[in-house]
Design a protein around this nucleic acid. Structure first.
Length: 231
DNA sequence: GCCTGTTATGGTGAAGTGCC
DNA sequence: GGCACTTCACCATAACAGGC
């Protein structure tokens, strides 16, 4: 029986740090920090995916980040605000704010600099398959858990339960890892996570229309929780 | 209106294929 | 061999539907 747990954050971060290709390193870094799906990072789609309405590349250009000062009470610090276009929700914009100070998040500044190198061009001008290759070579030997779920087949009226199992750690696993870290380490609530990760409030915390009025809550709601000295 | 189960849709995983 | 493209099974999650 597999141990159905995620790898340690530190293990994954070290792997990303040691990625040999610069574009692989920053691509995986961004996917992890933004709690993003591959399509929210990559900037190119091959002909087949376009023809079959598969992945839409929603990745950023070098212009999709800005620096703002965050000030509340005694706290005054700088935040890098990254614009991410959410997959599955027709490219709905969400803002990922990350502390610029190294003691809070040492990757924010290098990622901003990498964005700046690309100007008006796509920051990650390659396909999801390429990103998957990068994840495969970077996370070789690591795996992550898939929860049990029901499989509904067209010809079968009864759902087929699929047991919890492990899968090799690839691009989508970074989203799982980051979401878990935000809850367990930074104390994010379901509301915070729905803003950060681009989930609907219903899918994240199970609230209906009455609470969905708060769906506009922006990065200032969760940002103070990221000001936790860890490095 | 809320809750819960089901379905639809769009995205990812991963192996295969073919070209240079 | 390395790379990009093709292919389809699998998975995540938004939306729908029905009961209370």
């Amino acid at each position: 029986m597999d141990d159905l747990t995620l790898p340690e954050v530190e293990t994954v971060r070290k792997r990303i740090e040691t990625a040999t290709k610069k574009e692989a390193k920053f691509c995986l870094m961004a996917a992890y920090l933004f709690c993003a799906r591959a399509s929210e990072i990559i900037g190119a789609t091959n002909r087949y995916d376009i023809a079959h309405n598969q992945t839409v590349a929603r990745g950023p250009t070098g212009q999709d980040v800005k620096i703002e000062t965050f000030e509340v009470g005694d706290i005054k610090t700088q935040a890098a605000i990254f614009t991410v276009r959410t997959a599955k929700r027709d490219g709905k914009i969400r803002k990922i704010a990350l502390p610029l100070e190294k003691k809070f998040e040492p990757w924010t500044e290098p990622l901003c600099n990498y964005y700046a190198e690309h100007g008006n061009d796509k920051v990650f001008p390659f396909t999801r398959q390429k990103a998957w290759d990068y994840a495969q070579e970077t996370f070789f030997g690591l795996s992550y858990p898939i929860e049990k779920y029901n499989l509904y087949e067209q010809e079968d009226t009864k759902p087929k339960p699929v047991r919890a199992h492990m899968k090799p750690f690839r691009t989508h696993a970074l989203r799982h890892l980051r979401a878990t870290e935000l809850i367990e380490t930074f104390g994010f609530t379901g509301f915070d996570l729905s803003v950060y990760g681009g989930w609907t409030l219903r899918s994240m915390v199970g609230v209906g229309s009455a609470m969905s009025r708060y769906a506009h809550l922006d990065w200032r709601r969760y940002f103070p929780k990221l000001l936790k000295k860890r490095f």
